[in-house]
Design a protein around this nucleic acid. Structure first.
Lengths: 196, 196
DNA sequence: TCGCAGTATGAACGCTTGTTCACCTGCTCG
DNA sequence: CGAGCAGGTGAACAAGCGTTCATACTGCGA
């Protein structure tokens, strides 16, 4: 007698998505290692075992989460770059604004991706590291380009390091924006863009 | 037959410090929940049980680490503020430079403090949260002061939010500097200070 | 209507975790 | 010199972990 399982009128394959979302929420709040499969199961009204009908392991769920957010970030950044001219200043502003908006719109995703990717098995972790590097390189390229063409200048410093430092500084501002942003949305995008 | 324990010529009370340091290194690398007491014990050539002669629990070690780095940060910031005039611009530059240098000098400490304080029990976690807020308030106060006296201006935005946003943006740059900084040291302190 | 594929159950698994404990040791000091 | 004690050992503990599995339910296509 399985008493209260008339709730089985649940979605067909959407369960996978619900697990994905619950993982997002819980990993964000408690961290990957701080979240148990049982908590995950509770959050989607399932038994621990049922999770394994949708993901072969807890790690694979983390990877699915991290991988997807990278897909989205890549898509947004390359679309943004396509939609703007080849003026480095405009490019930088557009990239920063778009990436900021992205982090504001998806604070859970970006936080988990940035914080918990360490817990992936070596192979998958490396793949993530590569993707992160590519994003950084994208910003650095724009800055380097702008410097070469005289649109940006980096004070008293040797050029190579300064470009890297500046792009990292900008990225840091952008990446952490999701940590503190709370009120009215679209403003802050202009905000950080204005800060250059 | 305790075979190879002639190594017992170890320090008297310095062991606590060695555990503290090993915890710092391991928590930084693997995260708090990703580090086991046995790994910790291995790192200081001890038995798991021996750890508990120095710390009543794993959590208490985390708290000791996080608490100390906040002590040091507070000390540095208030000393810095004491050593400079009451010009908001100079104050901001000095604070940012000092805090940046701090994060560069202590990447393990600051990373663990910023990342793993969530795993503290509620009471201790709250105390840490309060201390973090106080640091942010310090920067915000300087900015607010500077704005009121006409030294800073925040573009098209309403004043209240802008001050908060700007101070957070600055802090984000500073706080994450330890994540990517690697080569020649004293330069980057000037660097971020110059970025304002 | 039947059977099958998909999905959930719940109990169990082996293992690792943080922590405890009885005991041993070797310095320090009266 | 002998007692005491801080600090170490190593084996054990219960609890919790991720994961597996035999079993059972259910809705859909033939």
């Amino acid at each position: 007698m399985v008493s209260a399982v008339a709730v089985n009128v649940r979605s067909p394959k959407m369960t996978r998505e619900r697990i994905h979302d619950a993982g997002l929420t819980l990993f964000n709040e408690r961290g990957y290692t701080g979240t148990t499969v049982r908590e995950l199961a509770d959050a989607v009204d399932l038994t621990p075992g049922a999770i394994y009908n949708h993901y072969p392991s807890k790690e694979s769920l983390l990877f699915a989460i991290v991988d997807r957010v990278h897909d989205e970030a890549d898509a947004i950044l390359s679309e943004t770059l396509r939609g703007v001219g080849n003026d480095p200043v405009a490019q930088l502003e557009a990239l920063a604004a778009a990436f900021t908006a992205f982090h504001i719109a998806r604070p859970r995703e970006t936080r988990v991706a940035n914080r918990d990717y360490i817990y992936l098995p070596p192979g998958e972790r490396e793949s993530v590291v590569r993707r992160r590097r590519r994003v950084r390189a994208l910003f650095a390229d724009v800055l380097r380009d702008g410097e070469r063409r005289g649109h940006f200048s980096f004070g008293e410093l040797g050029s190579g390091d300064a470009v890297q430092a500046a792009s990292m500084a900008i990225l840091n501002m952008v990446v952490l924006v999701g940590e503190w942003f709370d009120p009215s949305g679209p403003r802050s995008a202009d905000d950080t863009a204005a800060l250059h």
